Amino acid sequence: MKKCHIAYLACAAALMGAGIGAAPPAAVPRVHVVLPGQSIQKAVDAAVAGDTVQLLSGTYHESVEISTSGVTLRGLGSRTVIRPAAEKAAGTCAQSGNGICVTGTADRSVENVTVASLTVTGFTRSGLFATETDRLNVRKVTATENGVWGIAQEHSVRGEFRRNTVRNNGDAGLFLANAVAREDGASDSQGAVVAHNRMEGNRIGVTVRRLRNLVVAGNQITGNCAGVFVVGDENTPKAGALTVAGNLVVANNKSCPKTARLEALQGSGIVVTGAEETLVTRNLVRDNAGTSSLSGGIVLFKSFVGSANERNRISGNVLDGNSPADLVNTDPAATTNIFEHNNCRASQPEGLC
């Protein structure tokens, strides 16, 4: 009996050694190296989940669309630059005027894509545009001199935008929205994070439009027409239930003309309009000055479609040198907003400091 048992084990070991019944080996992540003059898109199309497309130093003239989950597109910092092609190429991303697109569908989000350490500049719409994504990670990307947005995202959840530089873009440097083209109620971003970015020379440093449940924290925001916009409207659920904390918002005094959606802007630090349950705390807001109805340090503004701010808390901020005032509430009839423990000199109406 003992010999039979030993023989059985030996046979089983032989079969396993031959690979019968064994689990297939795990795929080994690959690095696809791309040099200037080669196609980034070709490398992205060849990548599978876990792979990295590594761009070397130089300038690449193309638009790139990522629709595979788990792929990383990475450059070598400021030495890697993506610009538009001389002639607009085929493909939705290029035809829409975007540099990098991360694109899922309503039925299947693109998950866990990373874009890092590169510059994207000169596109007519956005440097980077993402839609239908989950856990998109954008870090150390410089998006500069793009026609509309530097980095933008819609229909997405759990995105992280960290240590990026967005400079001199036509609208917002960073733009996060429930939907770009529809007037829906606010959606839950499920904890999106906009942290430790540098925003300079844009129309608006960062716009959060019709979203809930996210954090804008630790950013340096200066030289824009407006620093931070939290935007809601009459749709339900309302925008809000988010945090704007620990940002440096200084001298956003660039002058921008009015648009079809918004009046002329200058000297707006942090603006909350048509939102609820937003916490604005521990920000340093200084020297934002202008004559727009949206000008001032921290401004609660009744939205242009008449939606009031409700149950927002403005707490523990340091404000100085903002004009027409450090704290501004243009809808004092909305009595559920709380101003507390702010270090400031002047408010409209009086008594908010």
Rank of each mutant, 00 (worst) to 15 (best):
N197Y: 04
R198Y: 00
M199Y: 01
M199T: 05
E200Y: 08
E200G: 07
E200S: 11
G201D: 04
N202K: 06
N202V: 12
R203Q: 10
R203F: 06
I204Q: 10
I204V: 15
G205L: 08
G205V: 14
V206I: 14
V206G: 01
V206E: 01
V206R: 01
T207G: 06
T207C: 03
T207A: 08
L211N: 08
R212M: 10
N213T: 15
N213M: 10
N213D: 15
L214N: 03
L214S: 04
L214R: 02
L214V: 02
V215C: 10
V216N: 01
V216C: 01
G218S: 08
N219C: 04
N219A: 05
Q220I: 11
Q220S: 14
I221H: 08
T222G: 04
T222R: 02
T222H: 02
N224V: 15
N224H: 12
C225A: 15
C225M: 15
A226K: 12
G227T: 13
V228Y: 10
V228I: 12
F229C: 03
F229E: 14
F229V: 06
F229D: 12
V230A: 07
V230K: 01
G232Y: 03
G232M: 03
D233Q: 03
E234P: 02
E234H: 09
E234T: 12
N235S: 13
N235R: 09
N235F: 08
N235M: 11
P237F: 09
K238W: 14
K238I: 09
K238C: 12
A239V: 03
A239W: 04
A239Q: 06
A239C: 11
A239Y: 06
G240W: 04
G240N: 07
G240Q: 05
A241E: 15
A241P: 07
L242R: 05
L242C: 11
T243C: 01
T243P: 00
V244R: 03
N247A: 11
N247Y: 01
L248K: 12
L248S: 13
V249H: 00
V250I: 12
A251H: 07
A251Q: 12
N253Q: 12
N253A: 13
N253W: 13
S255G: 05
S255K: 05
C256F: 09
C256W: 08
C256H: 07
C256Y: 08
C256A: 05
P257Q: 07
K258M: 10
T259G: 10
T259C: 04
A260Q: 05
A260P: 01
A260H: 00
R261E: 11
R261D: 10
L262P: 00
L262I: 12
A264F: 10
L265W: 13
L265N: 07
Q266R: 15
Q266V: 13
G267H: 11
S268Q: 13
S268F: 03
S268I: 06
G269W: 15
G269Q: 13
G269F: 14
